[in-house]
């Protein structure tokens, strides 16, 4: 039986797709058979981040409508074994993802996958609600910035009430915070909300902190999930987050300003 994980945020551009690609790849690297699904109908992007945009033949909506079966639509990753991508449709019909259709696809995937990662679109429209509805747990991607934190709180409110589990009388699904684009230098200068600030406001467990990093843009330019860039700080931070996701203890890295020498302290930075 697969575990369904939604990657969500409310606000756009905070790193949902980057995180979906990284987490899915990290889980597959650890031997879990993983499918990553793009719920952003009309604005497909996961395929680009995963570098498989030219291999898309069928998409999520094709499978729901019965134009193709799952086997035909799932794209097998060429770098990591046990990693599959289901791209979003480029149709302009936002209502194309029906609840019954999504449930059918998830049930079929659940038969032979360990993890199903749902890359949510931004906003709180039907696509985002659909991505969250069937989830067993959530990763809330947030930037240390006012509008992102506020939108994450809004999404947490939705997660607390609008999931299958809650509607069936169960507890709200667990959600953990992934703080991305974090700059220890700016936090140190008092220009950016700190991990503690965001944690205090959102009051959820912290899954990880990904530093602001050039490697994220480099990775998306190349269509390589950034987690595969083992040299990079962001790649390592995502590896740590995946380990924590699986219950391992990992200390936070890249969250402190490197200590300066005497002259650095004297003249500031």
């Amino acid at each position: 039986m697969a575990r369904i994980v939604v990657i969500t945020s409310g606000k756009g551009g905070v790193g949902k797709t980057t995180t979906s690609a990284a987490v899915a790849t990290g889980l597959a690297q650890r031997g879990y058979k993983t499918a990553v699904l793009d719920f952003d109908v009309g604005l497909r992007n996961l395929d680009l981040i995963m570098g498989c945009e030219r291999r898309v033949v069928y998409d999520f909506v094709n499978v729901i409508n019965g134009d193709a079966n799952l086997k035909q639509a799932l794209i097998r990753d060429k770098r990591v074994e046990d990693l599959y991508i289901l791209p979003a449709s480029q149709t302009r019909d936002k209502e194309a993802l029906t609840q019954e259709g999504v449930e059918r696809v998830l049930n079929e995937l659940a038969e032979d996958f360990d993890y199903i990662i749902c890359d949510s679109p931004a906003g709180i429209e039907s696509g985002a609600l659909m991505a969250a509805y069937f989830a067993d747990e959530a990763i809330v991607v947030t930037n240390p910035e006012v509008s992102s934190v506020r939108d994450s709180d809004r999404i947490l409110g939705i997660l607390a009430s609008k999931t299958r589990q809650v509607e069936a009388g169960g507890d709200p699904i667990p959600g953990r915070l992934l703080l991305t684009r974090y700059s220890a230098e700016r936090v140190d200068r008092g220009e950016m909300l700190s991990i503690e600030d965001v944690g205090e406001i959102l009051a959820i467990d912290l899954l990880g902190v990904v530093p602001e990093s050039q490697s994220v843009l480099n990775a998306s330019n190349a269509g390589q999930p950034v987690i595969l860039d083992e040299e990079s700080d962001a790649g390592q931070a995502y590896q740590d987050a995946v380990d924590r996701f699986l219950g391992e203890e990992r200390p936070l890295r890249f969250v402190e300003v490197p200590k300066k020498g005497f002259f650095g302290r004297l003249f500031g930075g």
């Binding site: 910035e145 936090v187 200068r189 008092g190 909300l193 406001i201 302290r265 004297l266 003249f267 500031g268």
Partner: peptide, 24 residues
């Protein structure tokens, strides 16, 4: 903090303002 910072006007850091606004 370098020595030049000591000559600057002390003012509320923007992160503190952000946190207070968000909490409300």
């Amino acid at each position: 903090m370098g020595i030049f910072d000591y000559f600057r006007q002390p003012r509320q850091k923007s992160a503190t303002v952000a946190k207070e606004r968000l909490q409300i």
